[in-house]
Nucleic acid binder design. Structure first.
Lengths: 222, 222
DNA sequence: ATTGACAAGATTGTCAACAATCCTGTTACC
DNA sequence: GGTAACAGGATTGTTGACAATCTTGTCAAT
C-alpha cells in the first residue's frame, strides 16, 4: 500500500498547491510560470503541471498564450471591482439562504466569531481580523449549504486576495467592517432572509468603497 | 505562413469544441468520455484531450476520478436549482448595470428582440423563443460591459441548458416569459437600475418556479 | 548609437511507448 | 445456482524524447 495522506489525488492536489502559491504571493502578477520549474518545485512532471495550469487558466488565475506559456494573471483595477460586485451579489444570496437554514449551534458559532472580531479590533490585530473575516464568510457559506455558489465565491475571492487585504488596512475600515459583520450575524440569527441579504450587500458595498479608495491611493502608497 | 483560420489555438479550441459536444447533447450525462476516442473524434492527441477535460472539470461540466477517467457530469435537481439561483443574482446585477450604460442604439436592439419574441410566441415557435431568449440575455450582458460576470454566467448556463429547455415548454410559461422580458427591457431602457435588477430577479424567479415544476413532473414525462 | 540579421539557448507543443489501474467475462469451487 | 479467484483487454497515468517556437545575446553594417 502507498502513502495516501500526502498525495491523495495528484491532479487536483497539484492545481491546489499551485493556486496557493499564486494567491499566497509566491509568484507576482505577470510573472512567467515555467512548466519545468514548477514541475521540479512541486515534485511532479510537466504533464501534470500543464493540466494544473490549464485548470488555473479556466479559473482565471493565470493566462496562457500559445507557445508563450503561462503567467500569473494581472487583474486590472476595473476587473477587481467587477469581481467584488459579483461577490456582493452572490454573498448576499448566500447570507439570505443562511438565515433560512441557521440552527442553534450555528448561531453560537457565528456570535463567537463576532466576539473574537471585536477583541481583535480592540487590540488592533489586522491580520487576525482578516482571518476572522474569512472564517465568518466561510461559516455563513457552510450554513447556507449552497455548494455551487460557495465554489463560485471561492474562485472569485482567490483572484483578488491581494487587493482585499490592502483595503482592510485603510483607516476606519476595520471598525466599519466589524459593525457590518455584526449586523449580518444579527439578521441571520433572527432568521430574516431579506435583512441578512441586505446587510451582506451593505457590507460588501463598504468593501467595494474601500477597494476604490485603495485603488485611488495606489500611486502614492506603492 | 500557416493557415490560421482552422486552428487558431489548439488548446482552447479543443476545450470549446468538447464543451459544445457536451452541452449540445452529443454525450449524455454520466456517459464516459474516453480520451483516445475523443482524440480521434477531435483530430488531436490524448495530451490535448486531457487538458481540455481538466478545464471542463474545473468548469463543472465533467467529473473525473483518478484512474477512472472522465464522465459528463450529472447535475442533480437540487444543484440545478442552486445554479439557477446563482444565475438570478448575477443576471440581476448585470441587468442593473445595463440600465446604467444603455445607449440609444442599445434600446432599439432590445426592443427589436422583444418584438420578435412576441411574434414567435404568437406563432407558437418555441425553439425560436428559446433562441431569442438567449439573444436577449446576451445583449443585456454586452450592454452591461461586465466581462467577469458574463463569463460566470456563461459557465453557469452551460451546466443546465437541458433543464432550462424543458422548462420553457411548460404550459403558460412562454407567455409569462415574454411578459417578464418585456418588463426587463422597459426598465433598462428607462435607465432605472433598481427596476431593471428587480425585473430580472422576478423573471428568473419565474424560470426557477418553472424549473421546479418541470422537476416535479419529471417522473411522468420521462 | 541604432538597427537588423543571425545563432544559441530556453521553453513550449506533440507524440509514442510503457506502466499502473480498472473493468469484464470466464472458470473453478462450494 | 452462486461466489470468488483469475486472466485478458481496455483505459488511464507517467515518462522521455523530439519538434516547433520564442527569447536573448552577439555582431556587423550604417
Amino acid at each position: 500500500m502507498k502513502a495516501i495522506a500526502p498525495e491523495h489525488d495528484g491532479r487536483h492536489d497539484i492545481a491546489a498547491r499551485l493556486r496557493e502559491l499564486i494567491t499566497g504571493g509566491r509568484f507576482m502578477p505577470n510573472e512567467r510560470l515555467i512548466e519545468a520549474d514548477l514541475a521540479s518545485l512541486l515534485g511532479t512532471n510537466r504533464a501534470n503541471v500543464r493540466m494544473a495550469l490549464a485548470m488555473l487558466d479556466q479559473e482565471g488565475l493565470v493566462t496562457r498564450e500559445r507557445n508563450r506559456g503561462a503567467r500569473v494573471r494581472l487583474v486590472s483595477d476595473a476587473e477587481a471591482i467587477e469581481i467584488a460586485e459579483a461577490r456582493r451579489s452572490l454573498e448576499s444570496l448566500v447570507a439570505g439562504q443562511a438565515a433560512l437554514r441557521v440552527s442553534k449551534a450555528d448561531r453560537v458559532a457565528l456570535r463567537k466569531i463576532i466576539a473574537a472580531m471585536r477583541k481583535a479590533h480592540a487590540s488592533g490585530d489586522f491580520l487576525l481580523i482578516s482571518q476572522l473575516n474569512a472564517a465568518l464568510h466561510a461559516e455563513i457559506q457552510r450554513i447556507a449549504g449552497n455548494a455551487t455558489v460557495a465554489r463560485l465565491l471561492e474562485t472569485l475571492k482567490s483572484q483578488i486576495v491581494r487587493q482585499q487585504y490592502r483595503a482592510i488596512l485603510l483607516p476606519g475600515r476595520a471598525r466599519n467592517s466589524v459593525q457590518e459583520h455584526a449586523a449580518i450575524v444579527t439578521a441571520i440569527c433572527e432568521g430574516n432572509e431579506r435583512a441578512a441579504a441586505k446587510a451582506m450587500h451593505r457590507h460588501i458595498d463598504g468593501v467595494i468603497a474601500a477597494l476604490k479608495r485603495a485603488i485611488a491611493h495606489k500611486g502614492e502608497t506603492v
